[in-house]
Design a protein around this nucleic acid. Sequence first.
DNA 1: AGCTACCAAGCAAGCGCTTGGTTTGCAACG
DNA 2: CGTTGCAAACCAAGCGCTTGCTTGGTAGCT
Lengths: 235, 235
Amino acid sequence: MARSPTLRALPPRKKPADKRAVVVTPAVTSAPASTLASTLTRSTSMDESPRGRILRAAAHLFLTQGYAQTTVRDLAASVGILSGSIFHHFDNKEEILEAVMTEVSVRSTERMQQAAKSASSPLACVRALLLCELENIHGDSGEAMTLLVTEWRSLGAQARTRVLVVREAYEEVWLRALRAARTELAPLEPFILRRLISGMTSITATWYRPRGPMSLGTLTDHILSLVVRKAPARG
Amino acid sequence: MARSPTLRALPPRKKPADKRAVVVTPAVTSAPASTLASTLTRSTSMDESPRGRILRAAAHLFLTQGYAQTTVRDLAASVGILSGSIFHHFDNKEEILEAVMTEVSVRSTERMQQAAKSASSPLACVRALLLCELENIHGDSGEAMTLLVTEWRSLGAQARTRVLVVREAYEEVWLRALRAARTELAPLEPFILRRLISGMTSITATWYRPRGPMSLGTLTDHILSLVVRKAPARG
DNA sequence: AGCTACCAAGCAAGCGCTTGGTTTGCAACG
DNA sequence: CGTTGCAAACCAAGCGCTTGCTTGGTAGCT
């Protein structure tokens, strides 16, 4: 388990190149003004390509069983190929986790920016972000934003900082919204307020069930009711 | 990793008995009315015995590196023995994790009950529990209540339910306090309010540093300020 | 012809755990 | 007092299995 392939494969590393990244979203470059639909379903790295199918299966398995408990053979079997064939698409197992995490980060950030853009007021924006984050956690949309929380330390240090860079844009959307609605929210530093909100939303993965009696909307309102200011700013 | 020793060792299982439990706290039985100090430091399973030292080292390693990433050899080395000697004290690796988790659960529940008992008002009780929970997460007191959150799924199903039983007493303290202070808190079901509080406190492990600029007390007050009722019940 | 996707087989290393024997502390006993 | 007995604690060695990953080759599409 605690293999460190970088140590063993030091001598003549002959893999052609780094299979990471290169997700420059070709659909966007080919269609200058893409429609909303094509924007949401545009072919990023989680499409119907073999690589995309592996990533989707990995997201599901890593989420349900955990990264360490999921073997490469598990993953290959759930896609319908043999274990060795995985390494035709990825250099090593950790790269799969990193790819899933960056993909999830990029997608969820896109959705958050969209949600923030189409809000009518600062407080409505916070509510929209709250709902969007809960949908990112519980929605069928690609599933598995929870991975970023639960499997964070399964990533090596280098990959961690790489994902963190992508992740910062997500948090920036939040902080901007919290600062804009500051007068209507609880009088805490936006950074701290964001951390507390993040705690409340991320832990819903352990107890909230979207098919249960409570809708995502009312869950959103419950959390929102805690973070709005107590004594409303009287004009 | 996914060994299932119960399958391989099915034939002549000759280990004498189950090494679990048997933590009947001898210090208590010998001293009928123990002092406060001896109650807090009484010899449970995390004492200076070899087993206790292993548990403390395991708590630390599991927390910092993760359970799956911590090998039995790591653990043995950090105690100063060889890997095989670990199994003189525990039947298998998972039993160590379970022992750490139950131990942490029992200790933290004790502290919570004590905190709840010595509170003067219902709201003060909630605050006391909040502070106590944060101390359980960040204090040097045995460290590692975070394990219960982060390594929950590293436990097998049977061990999980066993720990859950111990854990229920902890949550019961919370629910009782939230129900008692209901009129002064946000108008949410105690169960949901507890889950949201739990989210806020548990995630502090990822960003809050007790040696930083913010004290545990002010962090407690920040969280408390979110969960108290907006428009105070006017008598 | 060449590229992508995959198979079949297997290697080396690391893993949890076992085994049989040795040390150590301590209490019982003549 | 010295000896004996014994159990807890540990060592030394390694077994058997799983793991991530490699290698060399093939099928099929363009």
